[in-house]
Design a protein around this nucleic acid. Structure first.
Lengths: 338, 338
DNA sequence: TTTACGAAGTCAAACGATTGAATGAAGGAA
DNA sequence: TTCCTTCATTCAATCGTTTGACTTCGTAAA
C-alpha cells in the first residue's frame, strides 16, 4: 500500500519544481508543451490523483453542491435528484446527498455539514415544519441556498415549485366535469407548502364548484402507499362515501387503487381516483392513474440555475417561481353517479 | 455578505491564539473549561463553521464515502442507498452520491472524482461491463473499494450480494410445484453478475426439473417496467406461450402484469408471474406480486462494515459473501394448467 | 559591448486547521 | 532565594496546491 503520490513526488522524479508540475498539469501556457507532456506522463505512471481538498483550500473555489431531500422512498424526490444531478453534471459540480427523513434536526445538521465540507451552496426540499429561522442565518451570511419542490414561507430564499393549488383545482374540476359532487381528499395536512397548497386548491375548487363540503371527506396522513390504502379504506367506510378521491400524491393514489381492488370496487367506475406528481409507476398502476404531472425537469433545472448564479454572485434578490402542471387523464377517473 | 469566520477571527476577537481556540473547540483537556466555554460562545456568536477540508488536509483523516449506483430510477438501488446511508450515519460518515447510469466511463470518472474529493473509500454497484482492470489499479494502490449487490468477476475486491442463482431456483421450483412446465424468462442477459446468476439459476432449475427448454422462452431486455411490458407481450404472442414467467426484477414483473391486464389475461390464473428484489411496490401491484426478497438491509450493512474495516486498515484479504433470499408468495402465482 | 527581452522555471507565501514542543507565570518545597 | 512543577497558553511546522514575483540564461537588438 503505497502512499498517495503528490505533486512533489512527480517533481522530484523529474528534477523539476512543484510549481512547474502544478502549472503543467493545469496546462498553463507558461510551460512548454514538451514539459507538460512529460509531467503528465509521469503523473499517470505514478498514479497521481489530484487533491481537490488542498486545491480548493488554496484557491477558495468550491465544486460541490449539497442536496437535501426528505424521503428517498418516494419516487418523486428521486426523480428530482436525477434531474438535479443531470443539471449539475453539465456544470461539473458534484452532489453531496442527504436524506432528512422529514426531520428538521437532521436537516439542520446537513446545513452545517454541507458548509463544513466546503459545499458551494445548498439545494433543499425543506422538511416538514422548516421555519424561517432554520435557514435565515445561512442567508444572512450570504451562503447560497435554493429550495425546490417546496417553498419556505416568508424567507428571502429562492424557491422553485409546482403550482400545487392550481394543479389540484384542475384535478377537482376534471372530476366535477365528469359529474362527481362528493370528492374526498387524502394526504398531507399543513406541514409543507406542497400539502398546504394542494389542500388549498382542493378547498377552493370544492367551494367554487359548490361540491359537498363534508369535513369527513378530508383525511390527513403521510404520503406512502400504505397510508393511501388505509385512508381510502376509511373513506369508503363512511356512511356516505365519496364517489371520487383526490390524493396528495401518486403513492397515496396507488394505495387507494389497491384497497379498491381488494373490495371489488371498480376504479374509474364506482370510484374515481386522481393522483399528483406523475411518477413512472402511474402508467403501470391498475388502472393507469389519472394524475397531475409536475414538471420536475424544469423545476430541477431552474433551481440549479438559480443556485449556480447565486454562487457566481450574479443573482439579485430571491426568486420564487411556480411551474404550471398538466393534468394527465388516464383510466382511474370516469363518469360520476347519475 | 460577510466572509466566513475562521479560527483566527475567534482568536483575535478574544485575544487568544489560534491554537487555543482550536483546542478549545475540540474540547481538549489542556484548556480550562471556562476558556472553552468562552471560545465556544464566541464561535457561535460569530457564526463559525468548521472547515473540514482544511482540517482533513492537516490531519490526514477522511470522513466521506463515495457511493456509486447505476440507476436511480430503480427502487432497488434506492433501497440500497437508504440502508447504506443509515449504516454510514452511525459511523458519522457522509455520502457522496454518483449515478453511473450503467456507463463504465461515468463510473470510472467517479472512481477518480471520489478520490480527488478525499473519500475514504468507495462503495460501488458495478456498472454493466465493469472489468477487472477498472478497479484493479485502485486496489493496487490500497484504496478501499467494496461492491454491493453485484460482484466483479475475478478481482480481489470485496463483494456482498444476494444469492441470485439460488433465489431464481427457488422461484422456478415454486412455479414447478404449482404445476407449471413452460416457464418464460424476461430480463438481463450476461452483463452483470446479477443477471448472469439469476439466469443461471433459471437455466439450472429448468434443466433439473426437466421443464420446457424452448429458447424462445428467454427474452433479454433491460430492467424497466416498460421492458417488462414489451417483453411479456412478445412472450404472450408466441405460438405456444409460457404459462408462467420469472422476471429478472420486480419492475419487469410489474410491467408484465400491466400487459396481462390490458389483454384480459388473469395474473396468478392464466399466467403466473414472479418478480425479484421485493420492492415496496410489489405489495400494491395488481395482483400483489410473488417475488424473491433480497435482504437489502443485511447486504448494505455488511458492505459498509467491510469498507469501514478496510479503511481502518484492519481487514485481511477481500471477502465475498452471498445472502440468502426468501421467496415471498403473494397472488401473482397460481396453479398451472392441467 | 551593453541592454533588453522572452522563455523556462523556481521561490515562497498563502489557504485554515492541527499538534508536539516550547514558553511564561504562579505556586510550592527545600 | 533557588529549583521544580503545574497550568495556561503560544510557537511554528505541517498537510498538498496555487500563484504573483522573481531568477537565470540565451539570444537579439542597439
Amino acid at each position: 500500500m503505497t502512499l498517495r503520490p503528490k505533486l512533489s513526488d512527480i517533481a522530484s522524479s523529474l528534477g523539476l519544481s512543484v510549481s512547474t508540475v502544478s502549472l503543467a498539469l493545469r496546462d498553463s501556457f507558461k510551460i512548454p508543451v514538451a514539459t507538460r507532456d512529460e509531467v503528465k506522463a509521469t503523473a499517470a505512471r505514478l498514479g497521481y490523483v489530484y487533491n481537490r481538498q488542498a486545491a480548493e483550500l488554496r484557491r477558495g473555489v468550491k465544486s460541490m453542491i449539497g442536496v437535501c431531500i426528505n424521503d428517498l422512498a418516494n419516487p418523486v424526490f428521486v426523480d428530482f435528484i436525477r434531474h438535479i444531478e443531470d443539471a449539475l453534471r453539465q456544470h461539473d459540480m458534484k452532489l453531496l446527498l442527504w436524506n432528512s427523513g422529514e426531520d428538521p434536526a437532521k436537516q439542520a445538521a446537513f446545513l452545517t455539514t454541507a458548509q463544513e465540507y466546503g459545499a458551494a451552496g445548498i439545494l433543499i426540499c425543506p422538511a416538514e415544519g422548516t421555519k424561517r429561522d432554520d435557514v435565515a442565518p445561512l442567508l444572512a451570511k450570504g451562503f447560497p441556498v435554493t429550495t425546490f419542490s417546496r417553498l419556505i414561507e416568508g424567507v428571502g430564499v429562492s424557491g422553485f415549485a409546482n403550482d400545487d393549488a392550481g394543479g389540484m383545482v384542475a384535478a377537482v374540476e376534471h372530476l366535477h366535469g365528469l359529474g362527481h359532487r362528493r370528492i374526498g381528499w387524502i394526504g398531507g395536512g399543513r406541514r409543507t407548502s406542497t400539502a398546504v397548497n394542494r389542500l388549498a386548491g382542493y378547498d377552493r375548487a370544492v367551494a367554487t364548484l359548490a361540491l359537498d363540503t363534508d369535513p369527513a371527506l378530508r383525511l390527513f396522513c403521510d404520503t406512502s402507499r400504505r397510508s393511501g390504502y388505509l385512508a381510502t379504506g376509511a373513506l369508503l367506510d363512511l356512511p356516505h362515501p365519496p364517489t371520487a378521491i383526490v390524493a396528495f400524491g401518486d403513492l397515496l393514489a396507488i394505495g387507494a387503487t389497491t384497497v379498491c381492488r381488494e373490495r371489488g370496487i371498480g376504479v374509474g367506475a364506482a370510484l374515481s381516483i386522481v393522483g399528483f406528481d406523475d411518477i413512472d409507476e402511474c402508467n403501470y398502476a391498475s388502472p393507469p392513474l389519472t394524475t397531475v404531472a409536475v414538471d420536475k425537469v424544469a423545476i430541477a433545472r431552474a433551481a440549479v440555475d438559480d443556485l449556480l448564479s447565486r454562487i457566481a454572485g450574479d443573482a439579485e434578490g430571491p426568486v420564487t417561481r411556480l411551474f404550471t402542471p398538466r393534468l394527465v387523464v388516464r383510466q382511474s377517473t370516469g363518469p360520476g353517479p347519475g
